[in-house]
């Protein structure tokens, strides 16, 4: 577990911060994520993606659950104030980390570069779907675009990203 933590925790904390936008909540997500990984380790299926992908899926789910739970508790003013006072890391950005190794930095740089090649509309749809956990209908409403357009943009954006990141190989986050 210590090895898993050392390898994935910086990325998990970055993801959790991106979604929750609060340090304390993000750290709670990290704790919950690795507890879940430990509990369900025997059920991991390699054929359904890499270890990193699995860990990321759990972390995303935990973070989105926390945000939804939090939003139910807070009134609108609290939420607006919190948003105004925090600046989430940009998607794909590499926040300086004293413990990040060169390889991880290189991978992050390449993911960021791949993201920047996506048309802004595709990237926006993908961001809202993945990091905000919005449904396609909610994204369509948010972007004032037809539902079919949003579905196509999300699909094409993710497919393009998959093509661009394929050279990184499965060892990337596995």
């Amino acid at each position: 577990m210590s090895t898993l933590y050392d390898r994935y925790a910086p990325g998990v904390l970055g993801l959790a911060l991106r979604i929750t936008r609060e340090q304390a909540d993000a750290e709670d997500v990290v704790v919950d994520t690795f507890a879940q990984v430990w509990r369900d380790a025997s059920r991991f299926e390699l054929g359904r993606g890499s270890v990193g992908a699995w860990v990321a899926t759990i972390a995303r789910s935990r973070a989105l659950d926390l945000v939804r739970s939090r939003s139910r508790r807070r009134n609108l003013d609290d939420a607006a104030e919190a948003e105004a006072n925090t600046t989430p890391p940009a998607m794909g950005a590499t926040t300086p980390s004293p413990i990040a190794n060169v390889l991880a930095d290189e991978r992050s740089r390449r993911v960021k570069a791949a993201l920047e090649t996506l048309p802004p509309a595709q990237r926006a749809a993908l961001e809202l779907a993945y990091f905000d956990g919005l449904s396609q209908s909610e994204i369509a409403e948010r972007l004032v675009e037809p539902l079919g357009t949003v579905k196509t943009r999300t699909r094409l954006g993710l497919r393009r990203l998959k093509e661009l990141l394929a050279p990184l190989g499965p060892g990337g986050i596995a």
Binding site: Y8, P10, G14, L15, L17, W54, A59, R107, L115, L158
Partner: peptide
């Protein structure tokens, strides 16, 4: 899923 994993973990922090 691997691609989404790359995306998810691409912004490590201290």
């Amino acid at each position: 899923l691997n691609t989404l994993g790359e995306l998810a973990l691409s912004a490590p922090v201290a």
